[in-house]
Design a protein around this nucleic acid. Structure first.
Lengths: 159, 159
DNA sequence: GGTGAAACTTCTAATAA
DNA sequence: TTATTAGAAGTTTCACC
């Protein structure tokens, strides 16, 4: 995978767009003392290079009544069942992320639910998948860090 | 936390904006057979209610050379150190998410790095924090599920 | 609630530097 | 690579259903 070189201007443009996708290019241009056309060209290049994959809304799921976050580690009876189990997990609602992992668990996923009762229903669905030997749940009491700009800054300082 | 009621139209608007924040309201209006003004008003209401917190870019970090994802569970010597340790974690780059959790670990975080060596450096920084007793790392071999629209659909079917 | 059109802002692409 | 500019496109407001 080829590395794409970002310069300070690109970094700053991304910074503002990460904060708010709809930041007008004219505003970005004003702040960076370049023209809106330049912003446009640079964003387009990053899109063409695939650096910018797309954009998405950030929703407050708590306001919709879904305050419960948990991580669930899954032990499989046999590694060969990974693909099959993942397909089943893909059909279970409220599972937002799933990774194949090394270490303790074979599969590791994140769920978001209304409350403990609701979460129990989801975890039972996971437990019932054929090939799942056991699951282990870690309930999030508080999401302390989740800053969209952090990673970008880390990478930029690190390059 | 008061629950906000979304109807089918709101849901569809969110759906299109989750997919692409810059979807023109005129396109949404055309698809849903309503006016662009209505789309505008509904989005504004969801913003005012705080359902829509904001928007952000989706970047391909692999293309920037950061392909490595791991989850790190942290055991503390004492729960009273939670706040202190989280503050320290907040200063460590490449930690993208951190939760206070029940279960095996006291704190649970996610890191993104260039490669195993780079990840090792980050994990050592975590290990070195005063109050951290031990850490346990799960390396992601593959991110199999991470669909922005999944949760919205789950919630809408569930309401 | 929703509409439709006018007024305003932003985007985009072509040209020029 | 960047700036300028003008026409296209999108957003927002508002009088009226």
């Amino acid at each position: 995978m080829a590395k794409f070189k970002l310069d300070e201007i690109d970094h700053q443009i991304l910074d503002m767009l990460i904060e708010n996708t709809r930041t007008p290019f004219t505003d970005i241009a004003k702040k960076l003392l370049i023209s809106a056309g330049t912003v446009h060209v640079r964003v387009k290049k990053m899109e063409e290079a695939g650096i910018i994959e797309g954009s998405s809304l950030t929703l407050d799921y708590r306001k919709l009544g879904y305050s419960f976050i948990a991580y669930v580690g899954i032990y499989l009876q046999n590694t060969s069942q990974t693909k099959f189990v993942l397909e089943r997990i893909n059909n279970i609602p409220f599972v937002t992320v799933a990774h194949i992992t090394t270490g303790k668990f074979n599969i590791f996923c994140k769920i978001r639910a209304k409350d403990t009762t609701h979460a129990k229903d989801i975890i039972f669905l996971l437990d019932d998948i054929e090939g799942v030997y056991r699951t282990e749940t870690m309930i999030s009491l508080e999401e302390s860090i989740n800053d969209k700009k952090r990673l970008m800054h880390s990478i930029f300082k690190d390059l």
